[in-house]
């Protein structure tokens, strides 16, 4: 499924126009992206949270040449699903 299909489904249920729904959905994504860029975390109750992990700089090797190369420290975004969402995927109470 793509964003366009999702927007269509949402608009169908709320009665809000597809155009406005599309704008809202894009702004949701924009807000999450902006928060992550400024290292802020985004907590969406019942869904999950988006956070940033800091990776330290490290020495790695070029697998082709065996040369040692420095990998600079960087920030990596990740998503942690809520327990509610995990439970929905495993209805028999495994999670």
């Amino acid at each position: 499924m793509t964003k366009a299909e999702l927007v269509e489904m949402i608009a169908g249920e709320t009665g809000i126009s597809k155009k406005d729904t599309g704008i809202v959905v894009n702004l949701i994504l924009e807000n999450i992206g902006r928060a992550l860029v400024s290292s802020d975390k985004v907590e969406l109750r019942g869904f999950g949270s988006f956070k940033i992990k800091q990776r330290r700089s490290r020495q790695a090797r070029n697998p082709r040449t065996g040369e040692s190369v420095g990998v600079p420290s960087k920030r990596v975004p990740y998503f942690k699903a809520s327990n509610e969402l995990k439970a929905r995927l495993n209805p028999d109470g495994l999670d």
């Binding site: 499924m1 999702l6 489904m9 949402i10 249920e13 709320t14 809000i16 729904t21 809202v24 959905v25 949701i28 969406l44 019942g46 869904f47 969402l85 929905r88 995927l89």
Partner: peptide, 14 residues
């Protein structure tokens, strides 16, 4: 309403 449905629908799809 739109934000809630957006999140709910993603869950439904999964």
């Amino acid at each position: 309403e739109t934000v809630d449905l957006f999140l709910k629908k993603i869950g439904d799809l999964l």
